Amino acid sequence: MPWWFWILLWIALVALSLLLHLTLGYRLFRKFMATVHELGDAGQRFGNLPQPQETSDVERAGNTPAPGPAIFASPEQMRHDYVTAKAFRQEVRRRKRVERKAGRGQPQSLHDIEFS
């Protein structure tokens, strides 16, 4: 083969490689711009949502305990208060879970059913 054929072959290979890279780069740029546009639309859609009130289960139940003198109370009293509040929160969550499952028509768990 003549020497000029190799030069033409390499020029063609480099040109095709450059064309391929430019095509892939253009497609990547288009996809990136579409993603940015979608993110902007999502920001507009979800930017005006009302902020939910941050209330705990205890506050929703209407039984908010008054802050106590934790520094000066005895450890036994603080442990009792902690265990009592924890049991109250668990009971509130259990009641909500039972109501939610009853509303959906789902079977209740055995440990959620009150035995009276």
Rank of each mutant, 00 (worst) to 15 (best):
R45S: 12
R45V: 13
R45M: 15
R45E: 15
R45G: 02
R45Q: 15
F46Y: 15
F46E: 14
F46Q: 10
F46I: 11
G47L: 11
G47R: 08
G47C: 14
G47T: 11
G47I: 12
G47N: 13
G47D: 12
G47W: 06
N48G: 07
N48K: 15
N48I: 11
L49G: 04
L49D: 11
L49Q: 14
P50T: 14
P50G: 10
P50K: 13
P50V: 13
Q51K: 14
Q51D: 12
Q51W: 14
Q51T: 15
P52M: 10
P52G: 09
P52Q: 12
Q53I: 15
Q53K: 13
Q53E: 15
E54V: 13
T55G: 01
T55M: 13
T55V: 14
T55C: 06
T55Q: 14
S56Y: 06
S56F: 06
S56D: 15
D57N: 12
D57W: 02
D57V: 04
D57E: 13
V58Y: 00
V58P: 00
V58N: 00
V58A: 02
E59N: 02
E59A: 12
R60M: 10
R60G: 02
R60W: 06
R60H: 05
A61Y: 01
A61E: 02
A61F: 01
A61P: 00
G62I: 04
G62R: 02
G62Q: 04
N63C: 04
N63A: 09
T64W: 05
T64L: 09
T64G: 05
T64Q: 09
P65M: 03
P65V: 03
P65D: 02
A66D: 05
A66M: 06
A66Q: 07
P67C: 06
P67D: 10
P67S: 08
P67A: 09
G68P: 00
G68V: 02
P69T: 00
P69R: 01
A70E: 09
A70Q: 10
I71D: 10
I71P: 01
I71A: 08
I71E: 11
I71R: 09
F72R: 02
F72W: 02
F72H: 01
F72I: 01
A73Y: 05
A73W: 05
A73S: 14
S74M: 03
S74T: 14
S74I: 03
P75R: 03
P75F: 03
E76W: 02
E76D: 05
Q77V: 04
Q77H: 03
M78A: 04
M78I: 13
M78T: 02
M78V: 06
R79M: 07
R79P: 00
R79S: 11
R79D: 11
H80S: 09
H80I: 03
D81M: 05
D81N: 08
D81P: 00
Y82C: 06
Y82F: 15
Y82N: 11
V83E: 14
V83L: 14
V83Y: 05
T84V: 10
A85G: 09
A85H: 10
A85I: 07
A85R: 14
K86D: 05
K86H: 08
K86M: 08
K86Y: 08
K86P: 00
A87K: 12
